[in-house]
Design a protein around this nucleic acid. Structure first.
Length: 207
DNA sequence: AGTGCGATTGACT
DNA sequence: GTCAATCGCACTA
């Protein structure tokens, strides 16, 4: 698979399930620098993952904490599946399930560095600046047109939405507490590429 | 059937 | 910095 940006082209291998660590927090860290691509009839949009949060087993802030429900079902699938839900009745948010079948846990995708499909993302977002296209979990889903229809997709399989290998070496990885939660608010389970211009959140958490 | 709330965003002071 | 929008979901009854 070749991803083409305005200035360069990359060959990207899809990520296999075996490439994903068998541990939620380790996966959140490992996903930094990997790519996420969504193929749609109107074109392909793709970006580097630059920010994630882990919601591991036993975490009171995790949607899976209350047990299996109709909404969070995809979190209980084998690692590498998409869990997409509507947050605040306003924004779609995308996760990658992170444990074995029947165990509920996931990694929230919080920000992308746009690679391919930048004009498509601009139209979907109604914003011009690259740093405004996918610098938040809801923005990311809007830029890639991710919604209920992508819930449950296998991101390591033959899906329109898929994870790919890194297209260049990953920078230094920073760690902070998670954003926007009230429970277990002290856990250092947010990961980001230090110095990236495409992060969400308060500046102080991005250092 | 009614209630309370949330892994956010964008506009505004 | 503050705040409203907006709605699916889990829970109570």
């Amino acid at each position: 698979m070749t991803l083409t940006t305005p200035t360069s082209a990359f060959t990207v291998q899809p990520l296999s399930r075996a490439d994903l660590p068998v541990d939620t927090v380790a996966m959140a860290r490992a996903l930094i620098g990997k790519t996420l691509t969504h193929e749609r009839p109107e074109g392909r949009a793709s970006g580097r993952i630059v920010e994630t949060e882990a919601y591991p087993v036993g975490d009171p802030a995790a949607h899976a904490f209350i047990g299996l429900t109709n909404r969070n079902r995809s979190l209980f699938r084998e690692r590498g599946h998409a869990y997409v839900y509507l947050g605040y009745g306003v924004s779609w948010l995308a996760n990658v399930s992170s444990e074995s079948d029947g165990i509920g846990a996931g990694v929230l995708l919080r920000a992308l560095e746009p690679l391919e499909g930048i004009e498509l993302m601009r139209r979907r977002r109604g914003r011009e600046r690259l740093a405004d296209l996918a610098s938040g979990p809801g923005k990311l889903c809007m830029a890639l047109d991710i919604h209920r229809g992508q819930d449950g997709l296998d991101l390591c399989g033959d899906s329109a939405l898929w994870l790919g290998q890194a297209v260049r070496p990953v920078g230094e990885i920073g760690v902070s507490v998670r954003i926007g939660i009230t429970k277990a608010a002290d856990k250092p389970w947010r990961f980001f590429e230090r110095g990236s211009a495409f992060l969400s959140g308060p500046r102080k958490l991005n250092l």
